[in-house]
Design a binder for these strands. Structure first.
Length: 760
DNA sequence: TAGTTGGGTTTTTTT
DNA sequence: AACCCAACTA
C-alpha cells in the first residue's frame, strides 16, 4: 500500500511520467492538483530529486499556497526549497537578483494598473495626444498585448507601417517605457517580458536557472500567454522535463493575452511530448456534468474529452426566472438562508457567480438583509482603494523616493496647500536638472517663483525624512501608525464627515492587521519586502476561510474553486454572453464566453441553480434581455424548470409562446406602462435602444411618418441582422417598432433610428 | 489653491 | 448608476 494507490490509472501515469515533456489534459474536477502534488512527492521521495531542483508555477498566490500546503503534507521537511509560486512572483524573484543587467536597479518598484494609467495620462499630455480620440486605456491595452507577445517598443515602431493610430501608440509606448525606467518601475507585463529578455541576453543567468530547475510544472497552462510560454521554454531548456497541466475548455483569459494555441499546439512545440488525459470527474453529479458537456460541445476545435463520474445523477439543475434583477437577488439570498436554516448546507458551501462585478451590489444588499455572512471577491481590489494607496504611497516614498508618480500622489495628501501650479514648477525644475521629483522638492527654496509654497514643500520633505529616520528603530506596523499620526490622515476623514469615512478607517485598520500578519510570518520583515508582496496579490488571494461565508464573485475569479451549491446569476444574452461578444465578427469570442459558462457550471458539486431576469439595470438603463443561449444549450431533461411566476395585473396578457430550452424563444406581447416597457410573461427579451442620445433632436419633430414595413414584415438592421417585426405603434415623437431578431432577441427601437430595411 | 458643478463616458473579465 | 474631468467660483 503506497500513497499512490488512491490515484486512478491516468493520474498514476501523470505522476510516474517524470522525464521529458508531458501534457496533462485535465478536465474540470479531475484531480489535477492531486496528481501534481503527488508527482512532486514522487520526485522527491521515490526518485530522490532535491526539492531545490523543482519548480511549480500557478496563476494565483492562493493556488500556489494550497499546492505548497499539500506538498508539505506529502513531502515534509525540505519542501520549502521547492519554488511553488506564481508567474509574476517567480519573475520578481529572478529580477530582484539580476535587474541591474537590463538597466534597472534591483529594488525597482512594481506598478499596478492605476499607476500605469496615471503615467500614461502624463505621457499623453506630453505628446499632445487627444485622449478623446485615443484613450489611455486603449493605448495601455495595446501596449499590454504587445508586451504579452514580447514586442518591445522598438519592434512595435517598426510595425507601425504608416498607420497614424499605431504611430501615436508607438510614441506613447516609447515615452511610457522610458518613464518607467526613469522611475525605476515595472508594470505587470514588464515582469514577464523583462525576465525573458534577461534570460535571453545573459547566458550565465540562464544556465544557472536551467541547471537548477530540473523539473518544471505549470498549472492552468491554457491561460498562459506567449511571453509566459517563452519564459517556461527558456527555463525548461536544460532538462526539458516540463509538465504542463491544463484544460483548453477552461481557457478564459484571452483578453489578458492568453494564447490558447500554447496548449493546443504543445505537441507541435514538443514533438516527443507524452499526452495524458484525466477524464474522471470527482467533483460533480452526473446531471451537472452532462449539462457542462452539452454546453461546451458547441465549441469547435477543442481537444476531445469525455468527462464522466461514478457519482449518481443527483439533483436536477434548477432554472429560476424573474422579472427583475432585484427579485433574482432576493431569491438567491432567501434560498441560501432557507437551506442553511434547514441544515442542508453551511454558508461556506455556497457561491454566487456572475459575469460582471457590477452585479454584486444587489446580491450584497439582499445578503445583508437576510443576515447571511458573505464575502465579495474582487470588485475594487483592496490595495487599489484610495486610502490604502495613499498610505502605501507614503511607505513607498519612505522606502524609495525615486518614483515620481508615488511622491506626487501624496505631496498634497492630506491638503498642504501645494497645488498643481507648484507641482508643475517642481517637475520642470527636476527635468531641467536631471534629478528626481523628490530631490527637486528637497531644494524647493532654489526654485524660482515658489514663494511661500517652498516652506510647505520643505515641511513635506522633512516629514518624509523624519519617518525615514524612525523606520530604523521601529517596527513596520509602528511605522504605519506613525505615518497616520504624523499626517493626521484619519482626522481628515472625520473632518469631511464622509458617509464612508467609517469604511475607510476600517480599511486602514485592516491594512495594519495585514502588516502585523506579515511581520509574524516573516522574521526579517522589511518595508521593501512588504511592499513587494502587496503589489502582487490577487483578489482571490484575500479570501478568509476561517469563518464560513457565502462567496460572491465573478466567474473568472471562481476558476479552480468548487462549491457544493452554486448559483449562476444573470444568465442572459447581452450580459452572459455579453453584447460585445454577440456582436463581434469573431465567433471565437462567444466561444470564450461559452468556456466561461463551462467553468461556472463545473464549479458545482451537488446543486446548481441558474437564474435569469427579464429586466436588469445596466449602466443606468433598463435592459430587457433574452435568456442566455448557454441555458438553451442544456438539455431540458436535466433541468427542473419551474415556470415563471405569471404576472397578474390589469395590463397583462397571456404569454404567446411557452419556454422550451431547446428551441428559440419567441417574442411575446409587450405592454407599455407610462414610459416604461414591461414584458408580460414568456421569455421574450426587450431592449430599448436609440432613445438615450437621440431624443432631444427628435423632440420638436411631429410624429414620424409610418415606416414602409408592418407587423410580420421581415427586416434587416445594420447591427442586429435580420428579424421579424412583431409590434409597431405610434409614439409621442416617432413610431416605436419591436423586432424579434433571429440572433439577438427582441428589441424596441424608434423607427427613425432603427433604419430598418425590408427584406423578403 | 480648493471646492463645486455640470457634462461626458463607460469593453465584462485581471496577474 | 457611477465615475472622472474640465471649467468655474470663492
Amino acid at each position: 500500500m503506497s500513497a499512490y494507490d488512491t490515484l486512478n490509472e491516468p493520474q498514476k501515469e501523470a505522476v510516474f511520467t517524470t522525464e521529458g515533456p508531458v501534457l496533462i489534459l485535465a478536465g474540470a474536477g479531475s484531480g489535477k492538483t492531486r496528481a501534481l502534488t503527488h508527482r512532486i512527492a514522487y520526485l522527491v521521495d521515490e526518485l530522490g530529486v532535491s526539492p531545490f531542483n523543482i519548480m511549480a508555477i500557478t496563476f494565483t498566490n492562493k493556488a500556489a499556497g494550497e499546492m505548497k500546503e499539500r506538498v508539505e503534507k506529502l513531502v515534509g521537511i525540505g519542501s520549502d526549497a521547492i519554488w511553488v509560486t506564481t508567474f509574476h512572483s517567480s519573475c520578481v524573484r529572478i529580477l530582484r537578483r539580476f535587474a541591474d543587467k537590463i538597466g534597472y536597479d534591483n529594488n525597482f518598484s512594481i506598478y499596478d494598473s492605476d499607476d500605469s494609467k496615471s503615467l500614461m495620462k502624463d505621457v499623453c499630455k506630453r505628446l499632445n495626444i487627444d485622449t478623446k480620440q485615443l484613450k489611455e486605456r486603449t493605448i495601455l491595452a495595446e501596449i499590454s498585448s504587445a508586451k504579452n507577445e514580447l514586442i518591445t517598443y522598438g519592434k512595435y515602431k517598426v510595425r507601425v507601417d504608416g498607420d497614424f493610430r499605431k504611430s501615436k501608440i508607438a510614441d506613447a509606448y516609447t515615452m511610457y517605457q522610458e518613464a518607467l525606467i526613469k522611475n525605476n518601475a515595472m508594470d505587470f507585463d514588464d515582469l514577464i517580458m523583462n525576465t525573458v529578455e534577461l534570460l535571453r541576453n545573459n547566458e550565465d543567468v540562464l544556465n544557472d536557472y536551467q541547471k537548477r530547475f530540473k523539473y518544471i510544472m505549470v498549472d492552468e497552462y491554457q491561460d498562459t500567454n506567449t511571453a509566459q510560454f517563452q519564459l517556461i521554454r527558456l527555463l525548461a531548456g536544460g532538462y526539458n522535463n516540463l509538465c504542463v497541466v491544463g484544460d483548453d475548455d477552461q481557457s478564459i483569459y484571452k483578453f489578458r493575452g492568453a494564447n490558447i494555441r500554447n496548449i493546443l499546439d504543445f505537441e507541435k512545440y514538443y514533438l516527443e511530448a507524452k499526452v495524458i488525459r484525466l477524464e474522471q470527474n470527482y467533483r460533480s453529479s452526473q446531471n451537472i456534468l452532462d449539462a457542462a458537456n452539452a454546453v461546451i460541445a458547441n465549441n469547435e476545435g477543442r481537444k476531445e474529452k469525455k468527462l464522466w463520474t461514478d457519482k449518481g445523477a443527483g439533483e436536477l439543475i434548477h432554472l429560476r426566472m424573474f422579472d427583475t434583477a432585484y427579485e433574482e437577488a432576493e431569491y438567491i439570498a432567501t434560498d441560501v438562508a432557507r437551506k442553511t436554516r434547514k441544515g442542508i448546507i453551511n454558508y461556506g458551501d455556497c457561491a454566487v457567480l456572475y459575469r460582471t462585478n457590477a452585479q454584486s451590489r444587489l446580491l450584497e444588499e439582499k445578503f445583508v438583509y437576510e443576515g447571511i455572512p458573505y464575502n465579495v471577491v474582487g470588485g475594487v481590489n483592496f490595495y487599489s482603494r484610495r486610502e490604502i494607496k495613499d498610505v502605501l504611497a507614503y511607505l513607498k516614498t519612505i522606502d524609495n523616493a525615486k518614483d515620481d508618480l508615488t511622491v506626487k500622489r501624496i505631496i498634497n495628501v492630506p491638503k498642504r496647500g501645494i497645488g498643481n501650479t507648484s507641482i508643475s514648477k517642481i517637475q520642470t525644475y527636476a527635468d531641467e536638472n536631471g534629478i528626481s521629483f523628490f530631490d527637486a522638492c528637497s531644494v524647493s527654496s532654489d526654485i524660482q517663483g515658489m514663494g511661500k509654497t517652498a516652506l510647505k514643500i520643505e515641511g513635506f520633505v522633512n516629514l518624509i525624512s523624519r519617518l525615514r529616520a524612525k523606520m530604523e528603530i521601529i517596527s513596520l506596523s509602528q511605522l504605519v501608525r506613525e505615518v497616520l499620526e504624523e499626517t493626521s490622515y484619519i482626522q481628515e476623514f472625520d473632518a469631511e464627515s464622509e458617509e464612508d469615512a467609517q469604511n475607510r478607517i476600517e480599511n486602514i485598520e485592516e491594512l495594519i492587521n495585514k502588516v502585523i500578519a506579515f511581520e509574524e510570518e516573516h522574521e526579517s520583515a522589511t518595508l521593501s519586502s512588504f511592499l513587494e508582496e502587496v503589489s502582487l496579490v490577487a483578489d482571490i488571494d484575500n479570501i478568509d476561510e476561517s469563518i464560513p461565508r457565502a462567496l460572491l464573485m465573478t466567474l473568472h475569479s471562481a476558476k479552480g474553486l468548487e462549491f457544493s451549491h452554486v448559483y449562476l446569476a444573470g444568465m442572459e444574452d447581452g450580459l452572459f454572453p455579453s453584447y460585445m461578444t454577440i456582436m463581434s465578427d469573431d465567433s471565437t469570442e462567444v466561444e470564450e464566453e461559452r468556456r466561461l459558462a463551462y467553468v461556472g457550471i463545473t464549479r458545482a458539486k451537488d446543486d446548481l441553480t441558474l437564474c435569469y431576469s427579464r429586466s436588469r439595470m445596466m449602466r443606468g438603463e433598463m435592459q430587457y434581455n433574452a435568456i442566455s443561449r448557454f441555458v438553451k444549450e442544456i438539455p431540458k431533461s436535466l433541468m427542473d424548470n419551474r415556470p415563471p411566476k405569471p404576472r397578474v395585473d390589469e395590463f397583462s396578457e397571456p404569454p404567446a409562446v411557452s419556454f422550451s430550452p431547446l428551441g428559440k424563444p419567441k417574442a411575446v406581447a409587450t405592454k407599455r406602462v407610462g414610459t416604461k416597457t414591461c414584458n408580460v410573461g414568456g421569455l421574450s427579451s426587450l431592449d430599448i435602444v436609440g432613445i438615450s442620445k437621440g431624443v432631444a433632436s427628435v423632440e420638436n419633430k411631429s410624429v414620424g411618418t409610418k415606416p414602409d414595413y408592418d407587423i410580420g414584415s421581415r427586416v434587416n438592421h445594420v447591427k442586429f441582422g435580420d428579424g421579424t417585426v412583431t409590434d409597431l405603434e405610434p409614439g409621442p415623437r416617432d413610431f416605436k417598432v419591436t423586432v424579434d431578431f433571429d440572433d439577438v432577441g427582441t428589441k424596441v427601437m424608434y423607427a427613425a433610428f432603427a433604419r430598418l430595411k425590408t427584406i423578403d
